[in-house]
Computed example of a mutant assay.
Amino acid sequence: MRRYLFPVILGVSGVVVLMSLGFWQLDRAEEKRVYLDEIEIRIANAPIPLPAVPEEGPHKFQAVTVEGQFTGEYLEVLAGQKGASPGVMVIEAFALPDGRRIMVQRGFVEEEARRVPRPPHEAKVEGNLHWPDDSSSSTPPPDQKTGLWFARDVPAMAARLGTESTLIVASAPTGDGIAPMPVDTSGIPDNHWGYAIQWFLLAATWAGMTLFLLWRIRTRKV
């Protein structure tokens, strides 16, 4: 029996650990579902006035409305849309009547329309507060010649435009032929079910290998 002791302990321990990781992923999947439901509710809520001090925790994806003026100062981020030619995402400075300056992600413009003038104009904007950070260690810095950005970085863009680190993603057209790119939950990873299945399959494989090892030990003994 001592021959079987170590393989059994190793096999049972491995299965327990792998199954625990699978159930942990199921718990995470439920937490992510609740989180995504909360986001959907915030996105769909009736818009509120812009908070005096927007904070990512309580206000991310909150629907808001503001009135003021697009200043004509904008940044372009490399982007693409299904069914459209390559283009850019336009993020423009927006001046509020009380003197605050924020940023508005107005939406997508195809490459051919990038040079169309976008003069300052008054507007009412409805959208959602967002704090995206698409950049990574491999993201190149903005192109010095063209001014094109390759990812959204709210603090860096705010510093460039001289605004608060507050970004509203417009949910409706803001003029100048710019197509809005409203926020949604499709870009938020939700892979926990897949990870859970992987852990359970590994547990089953580990159990199978343990049984095979025990069989080999038995046949050698015989």
Results as ranks from 00 to 15, higher is better:
residue 164 E to C: 10
residue 192 H to P: 04
residue 157 M to N: 15
residue 186 S to H: 03
residue 184 D to P: 01
residue 187 G to M: 03
residue 191 N to Y: 07
residue 150 F to H: 13
residue 182 P to Y: 02
residue 179 A to G: 02
residue 144 Q to S: 13
residue 163 T to V: 05
residue 190 D to Y: 05
residue 190 D to F: 10
residue 192 H to R: 00
residue 146 T to I: 09
residue 150 F to W: 13
residue 149 W to C: 04
residue 179 A to D: 05
residue 177 G to K: 05
residue 161 L to D: 09
residue 166 T to A: 05
residue 152 R to G: 11
residue 171 S to K: 08
residue 169 V to G: 10
residue 145 K to E: 14
residue 164 E to L: 12
residue 184 D to S: 13
residue 168 I to D: 09
residue 178 I to C: 09
residue 157 M to T: 15
residue 186 S to D: 10
residue 187 G to V: 01
residue 181 M to V: 01
residue 180 P to I: 06
residue 178 I to V: 09
residue 181 M to Y: 08
residue 151 A to P: 15
residue 171 S to F: 12
residue 188 I to P: 01
residue 193 W to I: 13
residue 154 V to P: 06
residue 191 N to E: 10
residue 179 A to N: 00
residue 167 L to P: 04
residue 146 T to S: 13
residue 150 F to K: 07
residue 175 G to R: 02
residue 193 W to G: 02
residue 186 S to V: 09
residue 192 H to Q: 03
residue 147 G to Q: 06
residue 154 V to T: 15
residue 155 P to A: 09
residue 188 I to N: 00
residue 148 L to H: 11
residue 166 T to V: 15
residue 169 V to K: 07
residue 148 L to S: 06
residue 175 G to N: 05
residue 159 A to I: 03
residue 181 M to T: 00
residue 175 G to I: 07
residue 184 D to R: 01
residue 170 A to N: 05
residue 169 V to W: 10
residue 164 E to V: 14
residue 173 P to T: 04
residue 181 M to F: 10
residue 159 A to E: 14
residue 150 F to Q: 11
residue 173 P to S: 07
residue 179 A to Q: 07
residue 174 T to V: 15
residue 154 V to C: 10
residue 193 W to S: 05
residue 184 D to Y: 02
residue 149 W to T: 05
residue 157 M to L: 14
residue 170 A to D: 08
residue 169 V to N: 14
residue 145 K to C: 00
residue 162 G to F: 14
residue 177 G to T: 00
residue 152 R to Q: 15
residue 186 S to Y: 02
residue 147 G to W: 08
residue 193 W to P: 00
residue 174 T to P: 02
residue 160 R to S: 12
residue 150 F to A: 05
residue 168 I to W: 03
residue 178 I to K: 03
residue 149 W to E: 01
residue 155 P to L: 12
residue 145 K to Q: 15
residue 145 K to S: 09
residue 164 E to H: 11
residue 146 T to R: 05
residue 189 P to L: 08
residue 149 W to P: 03
residue 152 R to P: 15
residue 182 P to F: 01
residue 145 K to H: 09
residue 174 T to A: 09
residue 174 T to F: 11
residue 151 A to T: 14
residue 172 A to L: 14
residue 162 G to I: 12
residue 172 A to V: 12
residue 174 T to W: 13
residue 188 I to T: 07
residue 158 A to C: 07
residue 156 A to Y: 06
residue 170 A to M: 11
residue 159 A to T: 08
residue 161 L to S: 06
residue 148 L to R: 15
residue 161 L to E: 05
residue 161 L to P: 06
residue 150 F to T: 00
residue 151 A to Q: 12
residue 193 W to D: 05
residue 183 V to H: 00
